[in-house]
Simulated scan of single mutants.
Amino acid sequence: MTTMKEVAKEAGVSIITVSRVLNSPELVKPVTRKKVEEVMGKLNFQTNQAAKALVNNQTRVIHLFIPQNISMNNPFAMHFISGISDVLSSRYYSFLVRREWDFPYKCDGIIGMGISTNEEELIKEKFNVPFVLFGHTQLDEFEWVEVDNFQGAYDMTDYLISLGHKEIGFILINENRRFAFDRLNGYKKALVDHGIPVNPDLIQYAANEENDGYIKSLELLSRKNISALFCTSDELALGAIRAARILGKKIPQDISIAGFDGLGYENLTDPKITTMHQPVYEAAKTLANVLVDRIENPHTNRVTKMISPIIRVNQSVSMNQLA
């Protein structure tokens, strides 16, 4: 195995310079740094990450918080963990999944998802390591990456309206989280922009489960003559499709049903669900890179980033046949 001493000799620099290239590259002149890095590549030099972490008082462990209400076998969680894992492994970090905030072990940073609005202040007070959120926040202390839920809900509602739908039911995930508020506000704004009154009677709140989507959709479809139903998750949309069939409604001829996620559930029924795909894997990769960059370069500018979701048109939505 190539040593730092051998790299230093080949590059014509001191061992201290090689160490700075590894641990504090900003202190080394670009020309010198490039020369040392080229020699490292030539000699296939590999750093001892454990020793480096010990010297820098680091654990090289990231804590990944996923709340209890999100199942680990949910496609959302699996896409999220995959993105985190791919980046952290490539940058020589490991991670530990946490389900509660009182976990006692040390870490170099935290990635949080599914944070409720009343938990944000708690997080600010409790942790003194870099922290990035999947989900936007008004707290300036945190960096965040978010799928633009407002725009996604707006665009899906706008798409339904473009197909002649005006009576559009809405099944909202019943959680005290910003993404849910954003999706509701996006739906409302699209209606208002098209001169369609917001009717509270067309809005139902449901736990993010297929069966609750079924129950709430059954209630709504039984008492309201709507031509389209927008569910804020594909799991809810699966329940809505079951409810529509129980009532003898054909999809999409009698009722158009749209979802939100595009992470796999949309393919579990015939017709496939037209959905708003949120790129969770890509967002998770961005989150992991933002956190590691913050750990390794604490003085970089704060990062906040919105990622646009994309409509995936399938067969569960069509022109309003009743218009």
Results as ranks from 00 to 15, higher is better:
1 M>C: 14
2 T>Y: 11
2 T>D: 05
5 K>A: 11
6 E>V: 09
9 K>W: 14
14 S>G: 14
22 L>G: 15
22 L>S: 03
23 N>P: 02
30 P>G: 02
31 V>F: 02
32 T>L: 14
32 T>N: 13
33 R>V: 00
34 K>I: 00
38 E>T: 10
40 M>W: 02
41 G>D: 11
41 G>K: 15
43 L>T: 04
43 L>F: 06
45 F>A: 03
47 T>V: 12
47 T>K: 13
48 N>P: 12
49 Q>G: 04
52 K>Y: 00
58 Q>I: 02
58 Q>H: 13
60 R>W: 00
60 R>N: 03
61 V>F: 00
67 P>E: 12
68 Q>N: 08
78 M>L: 07
81 I>W: 13
82 S>I: 05
85 S>A: 12
88 L>H: 06
103 F>E: 12
104 P>S: 10
105 Y>E: 09
108 D>Y: 02
109 G>V: 14
113 M>E: 05
115 I>L: 05
116 S>I: 01
117 T>F: 05
121 E>C: 00
122 L>G: 01
124 K>M: 02
125 E>V: 01
129 V>E: 01
131 F>G: 04
137 T>L: 05
138 Q>H: 07
140 D>N: 06
145 V>R: 01
147 V>H: 06
150 F>A: 03
151 Q>Y: 08
151 Q>M: 10
151 Q>V: 06
152 G>K: 04
154 Y>Q: 10
158 D>L: 02
160 L>T: 03
161 I>V: 04
162 S>G: 05
164 G>R: 06
168 I>H: 03
183 R>W: 05
184 L>M: 15
190 A>Y: 11
190 A>H: 01
195 G>I: 07
195 G>P: 00
200 P>K: 10
201 D>S: 06
201 D>A: 12
203 I>P: 15
204 Q>L: 06
205 Y>W: 05
210 E>P: 02
212 D>Q: 06
213 G>F: 04
215 I>D: 12
216 K>I: 04
218 L>W: 04
220 L>H: 08
221 L>I: 07
222 S>C: 09
224 K>G: 09
227 S>P: 09
238 L>S: 14
241 I>M: 10
241 I>N: 07
242 R>D: 12
243 A>I: 07
248 G>E: 06
249 K>C: 15
251 I>S: 12
256 S>D: 15
260 F>R: 11
268 L>W: 10
268 L>C: 14
270 D>F: 15
274 T>H: 04
276 M>D: 08
282 E>K: 09
289 N>W: 01
292 V>L: 00
294 R>A: 03
296 E>R: 00
297 N>C: 01
309 P>H: 10
309 P>N: 13
318 S>M: 08
318 S>A: 07
319 M>W: 10
